[in-house]
Design a protein around this nucleic acid. Sequence first.
DNA 1: TTTGCATTGAGACCCAGTCTCAGACTATGT
DNA 2: ACATAGTCTGAGACTGGGTCTCAATGCAAA
Lengths: 149, 149
Amino acid sequence: MSVQGTAGDLHGVVENRLRQADQRYTAGRRAIISLLVSAGHPVSIGDIADRLPGVPRSSAYRHLTDLEAAGIVRRVTANDEFTRFELAEDLTGHHHHLLCLSCGKVIDVTLPAAVEHDVTAAIGQLAGAESFQAHSHRLDILGLCADCR
Amino acid sequence: MSVQGTAGDLHGVVENRLRQADQRYTAGRRAIISLLVSAGHPVSIGDIADRLPGVPRSSAYRHLTDLEAAGIVRRVTANDEFTRFELAEDLTGHHHHLLCLSCGKVIDVTLPAAVEHDVTAAIGQLAGAESFQAHSHRLDILGLCADCR
DNA sequence: TTTGCATTGAGACCCAGTCTCAGACTATGT
DNA sequence: ACATAGTCTGAGACTGGGTCTCAATGCAAA
């Protein structure tokens, strides 16, 4: 289901999606995508400011908003932390998060396929009962990471 | 597992928990708890300001922070919306949320017990593999409510 | 009633995130 | 090569949710 392969493939996919949204794959956007890929976990605006000092804050927000609208990145909101961003699920595969309540660290994890399947089926039923149109779901596990426990 | 019963029981439980945290169950806090109980769904600061005009914003935040620290209320963060608050799970029972991406509405739902059990077991395994100490989990279903779809 | 401590209201303050606008860049037509 | 139109970018002002401070008040125990 997910689009995986070399980094070159991924940049091509990103470029195509931006094209479909009438947008260009410029240096600033490429820098942010490369950062998200190399990080391998959700990244905050602060991380981006640290690692990409040449990209101003307003541009970073704009890029991320545009990339989100084009279905390339996704927002991750921890409990009361600031927003983080990661590559969209269809570029990386469906997964969930371990969120450390102490340091804010985010670790990606994947449920066993059978459990994920049951959850998805249950969500379909619950949503149907409320006439709710479900687009996606997120399962976040809150606790303390190995460093903070 | 959940502490349920009459409203009187609940206020007693709240009072005891505050006592254990060396805090009093004062009029402002009681007003907020009553609002959370009567609302029956997560409530935003804006809702509190509307329904409890006598409670200033700074006091409302302080009360909610204190109540959260005492394990009486819980924060619910929608995708990029502002924070909402609800009674802690052990006062209302474990449940999950349908979050409307358009209007921000939150609907409480409960997974079938068998699915919930499998999810909890899977979380235990995933957390263990990462040396992560899991305290709780949240499953949010994102989409459009009946009014917005 | 006094003393000590928790609680409260009012408002200044902070800062993540948004908005605006002028200038730079890029693609395409001539 | 030049012009033109439209997109993209940087800089900074602005917004508003959330926090912090501090003086005043309320409550409990002696």
